[in-house]
């Protein structure tokens, strides 16, 4: 025990830990899986990227400029959007506009409410709270958002006959795509709901273990974990809902015609 203060890791300690990666690479070489180069490169990237982000945070914590903190959050959001756009197989029409807006409102709104009302620290832009909390919210919403967007595009394609039959019977675009939208929303929420249900039994969440390691009382760490999980669930739901609310419209013309024939 060291009275709640953290044991510092010296560079020597780090090199010892890195020895484990070298051991893994040696094992890979021994079993000839041909991944040694990639493993080495990945481990080097990890070290460089984490140090870079560490110094960036160090700098942000020292400067404590609200403008700079907000700018970093916007870059994080834009990066999330770009990653999603590149990874998704079938993009819905106006993907960047629809998903970008939803991400901005969903994550921005929940982060703001969470920081202002729940955690209630000051100043509001304190990077020590705002950046990790927003990061977790954005990262999880990104997954929910890709699921919603991807599933909607797939459903609209697979259900063409159903949607056109409904339109022929006098359904509006919204009514005709009801089942597709419902399935996409369910798909977007599923991972978050599963994570909540399994929490504490199947996995000890990263934020909680991190806090415990750095000396936080476990009960306090648990409270934080519960709060952030609720915020994540809210953000995922709002983001996915907004994507679907706007997304389905772009499949129909003003005259309730399914586009893309």
């Amino acid at each position: 025990m060291n009275d709640g203060t953290l044991v510092n890791l010296e560079l020597l300690d780090l090199s010892l830990a890195y020895g484990l990666v070298l051991l893994a690479i040696a094992l890979a070489r021994l079993s000839r899986i041909g991944q040694e180069g990639q493993m080495l490169w990945a481990s080097v990237r990890m070290v460089l990227q984490l140090f870079a982000v560490g110094y960036l945070l160090h700098f942000l914590f020292a400067v404590r400029s609200p403008l700079l903190v907000v700018a970093v959050l916007l870059v994080m959001g834009a990066f999330a959007l770009q990653v999603m756009g590149a990874r998704i197989k079938r993009r819905m029409p106006h993907f960047y506009r629809v998903v970008g807006t939803a991400l901005f409102i969903g994550c921005g709104g929940v982060t703001f409410l969470f920081c202002a009302l729940v955690v209630n620290y000051s100043p509001w832009y304190d990077p020590r709270y705002l950046i990790p909390l927003a990061g977790m919210i954005i990262g999880n919403s990104m997954n929910g958002a890709s699921l919603a967007a991807e599933r909607l595009a797939a459903e609209m394609r697979e259900r063409r006959d159903e949607i056109e039959t409904a339109l022929c019977l006098g359904a509006s675009g919204r009514q005709a795509s009801e089942a597709a939208v419902r399935n996409a929303f369910r798909a977007a929420l599923m991972p978050t709901v599963n994570t909540m249900a399994a929490m504490g039994i199947v996995s000890l969440p990263g934020m909680m273990t991190g806090q415990i390691l750095s000396g936080t009382e476990p009960i306090i760490a648990v409270r934080y974990q519960i709060a952030i999980m609720c915020a994540i669930t809210g953000a995922v739901a709002i983001t996915a809902y907004l994507i679907l609310l706007q997304g389905y419209r772009h499949y129909f013309s003003k005259a309730h015609q399914l586009e893309g024939n």
Partner: peptide, 25 residues
Amino acid sequence: ALVPQKPFMFEGSVLDNLQRSFLYR
């Protein structure tokens, strides 16, 4: 009214299918 080549049946009974256009309105 348009009757398409492949009949698409919504989930449910024949009656449910007949009621669709009323529910939409």
